[in-house]
């Protein structure tokens, strides 16, 4: 399943997420990310490390995206501005909450 999410969380630039997830057990915070692309007018230096960080997010549960993003960014020495783990979580959780309301 592919999710196309967009949002501008507090303290972040406009963020666009394309997330391929394994939703065989349904779409929830437990669903595993197969691949993710994060786009927007944010800054992350060095840029190439951000590309690697995206690849490293494969296999992470959707509900833990922000936590893992922050951890990996720290480990890789990324300096980020206009993007944060909290911001990514806000976008994902808002989407999941909307889906829950509909169901």
């Amino acid at each position: 399943m592919k999710l196309e999410l967009i949002g501008k969380p507090e303290g972040c630039k406009l963020l666009r997420l394309t997330i391929e997830i394994d939703a065989t057990a349904g779409l929830s915070a437990m669903a595993l990310i197969q691949s993710i692309s994060i786009r927007g007018d944010f800054f992350a230096i060095p840029e190439e490390e951000f590309d690697a960080l995206e690849r490293a997010l494969a296999g992470v549960a959707l509900g833990k995206l922000g936590l893992e993003f922050s951890k990996l960014a720290r480990e890789r020495g990324l300096q980020c501005a206009g993007i944060s783990g909290e911001g990514l979580d806000e976008i994902v959780h808002r989407h999941l909450a909307t889906l829950n309301e509909r169901n």
Binding site: I38, G40, D41, A44, E47
Partner: peptide
């Protein structure tokens, strides 16, 4: 466009 931006977006 910025390095992280989607061209067609």
């Amino acid at each position: 466009i910025g390095y992280f931006q989607g061209l067609h977006e």
